[in-house]
């Protein structure tokens, strides 16, 4: 088990290094940062001073290592907009993002998994068809369209909820529903197919044939095995929580990381973009790492496969 954990940790570290290198290369490819940040007609002395200050006149590999070193201590430079450290700007937005993404995640899991299990156990029933139809809709409806439709109905027509902004519990309801329902539909689809896959296995038939009562077959034989692929999807959803919030936060003017990213991209505030990239990458990697551990815990084959 220990080698398993260590190998996964190494892999996680490597992915983060990859993301940082990606950001570094893309940033350097995009042109001279000095000219990008200062105006084109800035005096040459100012440009030279800027290069000196940011170490841009040093060899590229030296820049790379100092960049990586700074990144590991959370130093991504200062925001070009208001001169504050980029990482602080990002970190203070995290709670707002979690405030809508966590309830949305609970909605996805709490609604999606039971619906998927139910649909699989009652295959081809009305409930199954409805779940499948909803999941196709969840796949194909872009979140901004769903968000705007919800605004149109609940804010404009009925006037029950605010259309955008933040500050009260009411403001969070529409963003949470937007994020949660689409994900719940996808969750239901995956859970259903995982369950159907397991229910078709010989050991389920064997257990039923032995006379084990059906409830026990489902709860003891089918569910634990169907949990393995389902955990992958949950992990993926946890990992992409922040990314998924980009559009929804922008629609509802919710002050989270996603909206910060959009405005930073529009203003080409590169330090902030890099900091967000790192925060999201770390988050994704942590989620994947947890999924890997959960695999090892759920499935003895995985944990023993790496042991020898």
């Amino acid at each position: 088990m220990l080698t398993f954990v260590i190998s996964r940790l190494l892999r996680a570290g490597l992915t983060i290094l990859f993301v940082m290198t990606f950001a570094f290369i893309v940033l350097r490819l995009s042109g001279d940062p000095a000219l990008l940040i200062m105006s084109v007609d800035a005096p040459p002395e100012a440009v030279a001073a800027f290069r000196e200050a940011w170490g841009l006149n040093r060899p590229i590999w030296e820049q790379y290592f100092s960049y990586i070193g700074h990144a590991f201590t959370g130093d991504f430079g200062k925001s070009m907009r208001d001169g504050r450290p980029a990482i602080d700007l990002v970190m203070e937005r995290v709670p707002a993002t979690l405030a809508i993404t966590m309830p949305a995640l609970a909605l996805k899991i709490g609604l999606g998994i039971p619906a998927g299990i139910y649909a699989a156990l009652h295959r081809n029933s009305m409930a199954d068809r409805l779940t499948m139809a909803a999941s196709v809709a969840g796949f194909t409806m872009p979140s901004f369209v769903l968000a705007l439709l919800l605004v149109l109905v609940f804010a404009v027509q009925l006037g029950w909820l605010p259309a955008s902004g933040s500050g009260s519990l009411d403001h969070a309801i529409l963003p949470i529903i937007t994020l949660g329902t689409g994900g719940a539909a996808i969750m239901a689809r995956f859970t259903r197919s995982a369950m159907l896959e397991v229910l078709g296995q010989p050991y389920i038939r064997a257990a039923s044939a032995k006379g084990v009562n059906w409830h026990r077959v489902v709860s003891r034989h089918a569910l634990p095995n169907a949990a393995i692929p389902t955990v992958t999807i949950v992990g993926f959803m946890v990992g992409s929580l922040v990314a998924g919030a980009v559009v929804v936060e922008s629609v509802f003017a919710w002050p989270g990381i996603g909206r910060l990213l959009v405005s930073a991209v529009a203003n080409r505030d590169l330090a902030v973009v890099q900091a967000i990239l790192m925060v999201i990458a770390t988050w994704m990697v942590a989620a994947n790492f947890t999924v890997d551990l959960a695999y090892g815990w759920l499935d003895p084959r995985v944990r023993n496969a790496t042991a020898h």
């Binding site: 893309v26 940033l27 980009v246 930073a264 991209v265 080409r268 973009v273 990239l277």
Partner: peptide, 24 residues
């Protein structure tokens, strides 16, 4: 395989946004 892992581990929306930020 490494490139595949990297691509699959980051949400593409985020990669796309950062490329747009860096390149215009």
């Amino acid at each position: 395989l490494m490139a595949i892992d990297f691509q699959a581990s980051m949400p593409f929306m985020i990669i796309a946004l950062s490329v747009l930020a860096f390149f215009g």
